[in-house]
């Protein structure tokens, strides 16, 4: 197996790091307030949407068709995602300075973390076992195409394409992510 430094070509390494990025954004939302918190929370919501969309498009199909018992593994992950999405929808309409916001955010953080750890322990290790190097790499480039849709850091003053998309409505972000992933998969897969 390749060393970590070269593991940009490994979808599992990328997804695991993205889990870290998501947790970092939770931290940022918690320790900021006002506009800063609103901005950090928008980035968190978008990263979650992009991450989950990319997993749906890239990872889940592979698990379903290549991992023994993959259907059930995917079902379990979808159940966790549903729970997290319910909390997220409650949060999404809420003012980030609402006194109840942090309590709900805490619940979301734990749901998202539980889902992420379950992926790492019960799904990703099987992907590494059943995907060859090329497959890990092609899935990785699809994921990177998706990643471009969700900036983790604010880009003040720069009007990049990614920023425009990230500032658009969530459904549009999901659509654009899906398109980008499918295009990348078609090209590399």
């Amino acid at each position: 197996m390749a060393e970590i430094a070269a593991s940009d070509a490994d979808v599992v390494a990328l997804l695991t790091r993205q889990h870290g990025d998501i947790r970092n954004l939770f931290d940022e939302v918690e320790r900021t307030s006002g506009d800063e918190r609103r901005d950090a929370f928008r980035r968190l919501v978008r990263l979650l949407a992009v991450h989950e969309t990319a997993e749906e498009e890239v990872v889940r199909p592979f698990t379903r068709s290549n991992v023994p018992g993959g259907e059930q593994v995917v079902e379990d992950r979808l159940d966790e995602e549903r729970e997290a999405k319910e909390v997220l929808s409650r949060l999404d309409g809420m003012d980030t300075d609402d006194p109840k916001f942090l309590t709900e955010l805490l619940a979301l953080r734990l749901d998202v973390m539980a889902h992420a750890r379950a992926e790492e322990r019960y799904e990703f290790i099987r992907i590494r076992r059943h995907a060859d190097k090329d497959r890990l790499a092609s899935m990785a480039s699809a994921l990177k195409a998706a990643e471009a849709m969700a900036p983790t850091h604010p880009h003040p003053g720069t009007e990049s394409a990614a920023k425009n998309i990230a500032l658009g409505p969530l459904a549009a972000v999901v659509d654009r992510t899906r398109d980008a992933v499918r295009k990348a998969l078609g090209k590399d897969g």
Partner: peptide, 10 residues
């Protein structure tokens, strides 16, 4: 930080 993109200060 390499594996999980998190800093140990967390």
């Amino acid at each position: 930080e390499m594996i999980e993109h998190r800093k140990a200060e967390s």
